[in-house]
Design a protein around this nucleic acid. Structure first.
Lengths: 340, 340
DNA sequence: CTGAAAGCGCTAACAG
DNA sequence: CTGTTAGCGCTTTCAG
């Protein structure tokens, strides 16, 4: 591999001059030509490592996600595209929905000297993130927030998303509505729970605590909890599942039990991957703006690593949308006509 | 950030000594203690960039995948785990199933000085990969191979996978079998095509070229091609879809057309994500050993970056498995009882 | 407008 | 067993 020194020698200039043309600084046009010729002749490529050592910048952003599933990978994909277009590269790491492992991954990224960090926190306390931020690495939180930290974040309005879902069910005539939710220590779990409750409040309806289940966002827990709910002496005629993987698990359980939707009961899911549309019947679901989420996150971290701190701490609240398909129908149409 | 110099000063030793304890070389126990104390007191963390500049190693592996979907992300997940356990980190990049973009991503990784490269090639010619390999960066191909290149690779026995699927259909009594396949310039497409044909050969059956469709591995093309097949004057009573995304697309089309599986016709899909099990009915499908694929790829590249070239070029051929579920039933049971 | 020279933080001979 | 020293390849004052 040729170095800047070889280029300088070949062009008959100093390394400083080569460095200048490399960085687009002003040099005499003639000199520039010579340098460029030398670069091409030698097939020279700058050494990023050396550059980083000197400039203390790596042109790299880290992104810690809780899983490599379709939801976060779709946002990662748009983040990567945008960041690439700005000359940055992205390292995506998996925290496995595990705070200890998240800490580990974050540490690794910081040691790799990423210029900025995107993270989907796995718990609501994140002192390690605060420290990193204070040490000068911009951090932006994605999809979830943490307590006690001034930090940029791009979130979805989960209260509103859950609200729409449950309100839809109420409007259809359901009163006894089950909830399968994720951990309450993470924003999305907590907010969706609040959205659920708020509907009952606003409609002045009693909430049956016995119909609420809290899992860990995984397919397995969606499966188990749905079976639990259906195993109740008096199972709810409608269920809202507040996360994608749990929705998959719940459907698995339903299929196994041989229940028919929406005849036997109504289901509202979360997120809109192939599955939701392919299910039988296609699922009514709250869909989140993944594309926009990725865009906002990418643009924001880019701005921050560029030293622009306007609006800090910035908080985006993106709007989810309820897409009504065929897994919900009016209560009176279900077979289950018991009095509520 | 404290440097090795600060540590040396504080411990009253030279930077060389500090470097030695950092790298686990032998030093007097007492000296080691002093150094460690200084490191902890200062909260010192080695600077990877500086180290990389000196050693020409980054402890990083690049992985170029054609998409961020569940199939490749599942292998990426196991690769990351294993590599992390060896002290390496992984940068996953998306080539978007596009050769030009693949080249770009590979170049970026090489410029970032990854120690090794895992790639799922998007076409069967890959001169850029050969160059990189010759320049000394180990390359291992995953899931697909290329022509004219001596290179390690971990592949699935696709001929066999497709064979099992189609043979299953033949055994059930089907003769007119449709194929929805991916691009033939990529190994998986080409091999699955061969597997399909070989069944007809072995069973001495005529193949109807009019029932074969070639798409681009995407959900959209699976959808379009399935509709095309079903729009034929005499649509095939059984179809084998040779890739995950296309399977999704095909099912979407089937649902829209209101066709019933396996009563109206039989379907064998590829890969085994949630969808396959959740579909209605659960899909008979060829399932690939993702876990093993990730393990083999990770261990192999690790071995290579460690300078161990035994067995080069190594080729793994992992065995897929046909999982029979409910989307296929004997031909005589289908409504479509025309003579073949 | 360009060159000389001093590092960025670390490792690896080479000496002692 | 430990210290001295010379870089890795690049950027960036500071002079000229």
């Amino acid at each position: 591999m040729p170095t800047i020194k070889d280029v300088a020698a070949r062009a008959g200039v100093s390394t400083a001059t080569v460095s200048r043309v490399l960085n687009g600084e002003k040099v005499k046009e003639e000199t520039e030509k010579k340098v460029i010729a030398a670069i091409e002749a030698l097939g020279y490529r700058p050494n990023h490592i050396a550059r980083s050592l000197k400039t203390q910048k790596t042109q790299t952003i880290g992104f810690v996600v809780p899983d490599f599933g379709p939801f976060f990978m779709q946002v990662a994909e748009v983040v990567e595209d945008i960041l690439n277009s700005y000359g940055y590269s992205l390292i995506v790491c998996n925290s496995n929905e595990n705070p200890a492992r998240e800490k580990e991954r974050v540490r690794m990224l910081v040691e790799k000297q990423v210029d900025g960090l995107l993270v989907v926190p796995t718990s609501d306390t994140a002192s390690h993130l605060r420290e990193i931020q204070q040490d000068g690495t911009p951090v932006v939180l994605v999809d979830r927030m943490v307590k006690d930290m001034q930090v940029d974040c791009v979130l979805v309005d989960n209260v509103n998303g859950a609200y729409q879902a449950v309100e839809h069910l109420v409007t259809l005539g359901y009163r006894r509505i089950g909830l399968i939710n994720g951990r309450l220590e993470v924003t999305t779990g907590e907010e969706r729970y609040r959205g659920f409750l708020r509907v009952f409040e606003d409609y002045n309806l009693p909430v049956d605590e016995g119909l609420i289940r809290t899992g860990d966002f995984s397919t397995e827990s969606g499966y188990t909890l749905m079976k639990e709910l259906m195993g109740l002496p008096d199972p709810p005629p409608a269920v809202f599942v507040a996360n994608y993987y749990m929705t998959i698990g719940a459907m698995l359980a339903i299929n196994e039990l041989g229940l028919k939707i929406p005849t036997d009961f109504a289901l509202v899911g979360f997120d809109d991957m192939e599955l939701t549309r392919l299910a039988n019947p296609p699922l009514t679901a709250v869909v989140q703006p993944l594309q926009e989420m990725g865009e906002k996150a990418a643009e924001l971290i880019y701005k921050r690593v560029g030293g622009d701190n306007t609006g800090f701490p910035q908080m985006y609240r993106l709007k989810p949308e309820l897409v009504i398909r065929h897994s919900t129908s009016p209560f009176w149409k279900t077979k289950n006509l018991e009095v509520v």
